[in-house]
């Protein structure tokens, strides 16, 4: 008997202990709160709303393509290109945000340097995607590697934020500071998980239990990033305060 959509969906979600719907719920909550306080803030706080909308649509597309098998993706490059696009948007969003928050010439110079390296790697990856000599497995690994270093760089900037927090005069009300909440909830995800994600393929083949647990935990901590963004919106203050 062919199972219905909801049973199939539950089965898919159960694989990773329902962490996928948890992340989706966190994203939707963040988006709703962002829309509620849309008029409260300057343009650079609102950009998180656009980013989250894009991420949700991207997640829905990925689910449709990979889980529901809608559309023939065997010889198409679109899913891979969308993954690359997602990586670019994630990098631009967080590095721009931290670029504005940290306001240090050294950090800004380092971000510009890292951006050059990042986009050079992205261009090479994109060329590789369209080059039939490179199998999908290799381009996926390179994508994971770029994503890993990108997140680690953002994690480093998050730690730098805390260093600066205790160096500067304590003039900010931290519990009402949007940037504090976004960075606090992101620091674990950006530092701990990037190297672990490189081992996903290894675990998928060698240790399925570990693979399920790590992917689920990965989604779990990703959900907290959106909880942090939600809390930031609830502060109802400009992002740089």
């Amino acid at each position: 008997m062919q199972e219905d959509f909801w049973t199939y969906l539950m089965r898919q979600w159960q694989v990773f202990y329902f962490m996928s719907p948890f992340v989706l719920a966190c994203q939707i909550t963040a988006l709703i709160i962002c829309l509620k306080y849309w008029r409260n803030d300057k343009i650079y706080f609102r950009f998180f709303g656009y980013i989250i909308t894009g991420i949700i649509l991207f997640a829905v597309y990925n689910f449709a393509v990979y889980s529901l098998r809608i559309g023939n993706i065997e010889n198409q490059k679109l899913p891979e290109l969308l993954n690359v696009l997602f990586l670019i948007i994630e990098f631009l969003a967080f590095s721009a945000f931290l670029y504005v928050i940290l306001k240090s010439p050294a950090v800004q110079a380092a971000t510009r340097f890292f951006s050059v390296l990042f986009f050079a790697a992205i261009i090479l990856l994109t060329v590789g995607i369209f080059n039939p000599l490179y199998p999908k497995k290799d381009t996926d690994q390179i994508l994971s590697l770029i994503g890993c270093f990108e997140l680690m760089y953002i994690g480093f900037l998050c730690l730098l934020y805390f260093y600066k927090l205790f160096k500067m005069p304590p003039a900010v009300n931290l519990s009402k500071s949007p940037s504090f909440w976004i960075i606090s909830f992101s620091v674990l995800y950006t530092i701990v998980f990037p190297p672990i994600t490189l081992l996903f393929d290894k675990f998928r083949i060698e240790n399925k239990v570990m693979f399920r647990t790590i992917v689920a935990l990965h989604y779990f901590s990703l959900g907290f990033v959106y909880i942090g963004i939600t809390k930031a919106f609830l502060c109802k203050k400009p992002l740089t305060s």
Binding site: L165, L174, F180, S184, V187, L188, V209, R212, F224
Partner: peptide
Amino acid sequence: LFVFVAIGIIAVMMAFILTILFLYR
């Protein structure tokens, strides 16, 4: 295993945030 590790992650995160808030205050 997952639940234990997830609780551990939450505990570490909360401890980290509360410590930062306390020290800053």
